[in-house]
Design a protein around this nucleic acid. Structure first.
Lengths: 193, 193
DNA sequence: AAGAATTGCGCAATAC
DNA sequence: GGTATTGCGCAATTCT
């Protein structure tokens, strides 16, 4: 509920090599709801795996967290992602110094194993969280459905009871009249109801 | 419910110019729920605008839809996105011909105005759709809440009616006894209820 | 202080 | 053809 996320303003700086992949989408056919959200092992989880992408970076442009990319030549991509490519694009070395805006920030090496690990862990968490959300929504819908049905039944029940009440009251009033004719006394009905 | 999306296997082919940006995120502070999902005009919608990015491309490697990128020199970015940069990166012209794998597919120029237009329209649609989904979920939650409350009231009402019924029945049985003492007759109560 | 959980976003595939 | 949905990964934040 507290979404004060200032949103990310990512600036592409690498003048020439500025592209930064991203997407590297994978197959995600298995929606398995039972799976413990294991890391999408190589070809697992989808089918063919993803690749791609080594981006020079995407730095955010925010006051509290703008990141510059210092894409070091460490092209040794060890992750299934960004398997190939990025053979040349370190323009950053001479381009960014000029264009790069918030040069003062933490640099994140998107090729580092640590980065990939964090990303992968987050991806797992994201999938888990979304599954959870989906289930929650479904449960809420079901609950609403059930409540609606129960409501219907209760309404019906109330209708029946009300009718019975009317009948009884009618009968009682009749009785009272009869009783009055014979001998005016015992007027407890009015008081009791 | 029919999510047969085979997932996308995006292959980065541009040997050298292969990077493809992506992200270019913008500030999205305004979550405005009233806005008609207008295209994120320049600085509008967030604050600072996004830029960046022209990637050489990312082609999918699927049987039914693998796309190659034929990033033509048409670097003339006209969109607010990728405002600057992409001043030179047409490696594709001489690199892809060699490495490009599934050369037989539709080529998508990610720098084309048409592509950006489509993307932007889709982004708008996505935002709209998600807002709608969010509202739907909220409504369902509210409805469940209301139904729950109404249910409570109905239950209470039924409790009251039931009790009154019992009282009336009790009174009637008393009366009947009295009536029986005086003169056994008119036994309509049992039949009427 | 660090990792997990959330959430907005854009992309691409696909449903409509 | 175009919009609407949906899964996904990223990054910023929040929660623990």
């Amino acid at each position: 509920m507290s979404d004060s996320r200032v949103s990310s303003v990512i600036q592409e700086w690498a003048y020439p090599g500025q592209a930064h992949p991203h997407h590297v989408s994978t197959n995600h056919l298995a929606q398995m709801d039972m799976m413990p959200y294991s890391q999408p092992q190589g070809p697992a989880r989808g089918g063919s795996d993803e690749k791609g992408a080594e981006q020079v970076m995407g730095l955010s442009y925010l006051p509290y967290n703008s990141s510059c990319l210092i894409n070091p030549p460490s092209v040794g991509s060890t992750n299934r992602h960004q398997s190939h490519a990025h053979t040349q694009q370190d323009f950053s070395s001479f381009l960014l110094p000029t264009l790069r805006a918030p040069v003062n920030k933490r640099s994140i090496n998107k090729n580092s194993t640590e980065y990939r690990l964090r990303r992968e862990r987050n991806n797992v968490a994201v999938r888990k969280s979304r599954d959870k959300a989906r289930r929650r929504v479904l449960l809420t819908q079901q609950r609403a459905q059930e409540l609606q049905e129960e409501n219907q039944k209760l309404q019906t029940r109330i209708g029946q009871l009300t009718q019975e009440m009317d009948t009884l009251k009618h009968i009682l009033s009749q009785r009272r009249m009869h009783a009055a004719e014979e001998g005016p006394a015992e007027s407890d009905i009015q008081n009791q109801i």
